[in-house]
Write a protein that binds this DNA or RNA. Structure first.
Lengths: 225, 225
DNA sequence: CTCAAGGCGTGACAAAAGTCATCGGCAAGG
DNA sequence: CCTTGCCGATGACTTTTGTCACGCCTTGAG
């Protein structure tokens, strides 16, 4: 049962999960396909079963800013389900994904019956809030170079958790996407990646990055040039 | 009773408010005085009784970014009370303020006894989340000029709600503070204010601003130069 | 009154971010 | 095989942002 692996539903009994599973609607999305758009009224929440979904804001000028990338087990849009407002941002699949949709009503009754679920939601929302504060901090205080280095370090961290040294991982499909994740434009990503490579901090083979000089990257992510 | 006016405690009975009131600790803060600092372990939440408190992040380079300004009736730091983490940002009084402190433990038992309180908290946190997304949007997509114009429009809105046309209100105590609210530095605030004035959009008498050309301000806040 | 401190406004730069245009490579479809 | 389209890299600028230094007020303490 997929639902049992979802953070906000952990701790529910088998029969309660059944209750949910029966009412949840599964849907598949192609890469790039929209799940919902900013401002739309919210009919319920989604749970990622497989694939990845990006949550983002779009500007009038065509730029995008990614707020979060959600993978399997994450819930999406728990928030507007509670406060009654529309979706605060848009969501779209990054890679082929399947999501479960749970209607507002079903979720509400679940929360009423199980106060612990509400607490779980609060934790998840709390984590989101901390994450957003982190984005604000980066956008407000740092440069593109800094944010890019920090991004690479996070990815390296993730890769390191699985494999071994040296850290090695793949960049997002294209620079445009990476740019929207760190809040800038394609060209600056390209230039800063080149620069980091020419400085010997990383090596790139296509979309694969190998971290050569961890200290150097950390220095770039911290402050000075 | 002050507590009855607090969003997250609305709907509690007289005796429950009593319960809280007996345990809450009142404290006064002078302007600029720190309530708590980012990263500190969280002992409980605060409720603003009078005055104003700013919630902000500080950078290594000495810059600050304001996340929120909270007035009477607002609660502060409900979040870390739930997820167990430290405070995600710092808080300090803007003007003389009195706050009520409610310990984590007391608040927890209240939530257990009254699930509706948890729902209220979720609403408040939700509103915060939307607010933060708005900040990210502004920082990521717009210029200082744009953010300043948007700030002035919000203030004008607030002033308009009370008095009459033309909108008239006071800026934060100094440009440094205003700068940290819109994510920039003192000098740029000064320059952009001058520019808006020379364009005839606003008039300044000391710290008092009068909006002369609402359309013009809106234009500046929307996109073009 | 005098002095010092803090804040504002500004000019002069320096650095970073963003825009536009162009070239070249790679891959999919015909 | 050729063509078309997408994407990355990069040069040349422009605009924005941020830094530093300075001069001028106002205010409050002595």
């Amino acid at each position: 049962m997929t639902l049992s692996k979802v953070a906000i539903f952990s701790g529910l009994s088998e029969s309660e999960l059944q209750f949910l599973a029966q009412r949840a609607v599964q849907r598949s999305y192609a890469p790039g396909e929209t799940v919902f758009s900013e401002g739309q009224p919210c009919g319920g929440l989604y749970v990622v079963e497989s694939g990845q979904v990006r949550i983002f804001k779009s500007s009038a000028g065509g730029r995008e800013q990614v707020l979060n990338i959600e993978g399997p087990g994450s819930s999406i849009a728990e928030l507007p389900v509670f406060d009654g407002g529309g979706y605060p941002a848009s969501a779209a699949a990054v890679v082929p994904a399947t999501l479960l949709f749970v209607s507002k009503e079903d979720f509400h009754s679940l929360c009423l019956a199980h106060p612990q679920v509400t607490l779980k939601v609060l934790k998840v929302v709390g984590a989101r809030l901390r994450h957003l504060v982190g984005i604000i901090e980066e956008l407000s205080f740092t440069t593109v170079r800094h944010r890019l280095a920090a991004f690479l370090l996070r990815e390296a961290q993730g890769a390191h958790a699985q494999n071994s040294t040296p850290a090695r991982f793949n960049l997002p499909a294209n620079n445009q996407e990476l740019a929207s994740q760190i809040g800038t434009v394609r060209e600056l990503v390209s230039r800063n990646l080149s620069r980091l490579q020419s400085e010997g901090a990383i090596r790139m083979d296509g979309r694969e990055v190998t971290v050569l000089d961890l200290k150097g990257l950390q220095a770039a992510a911290n402050s000075e040039d």
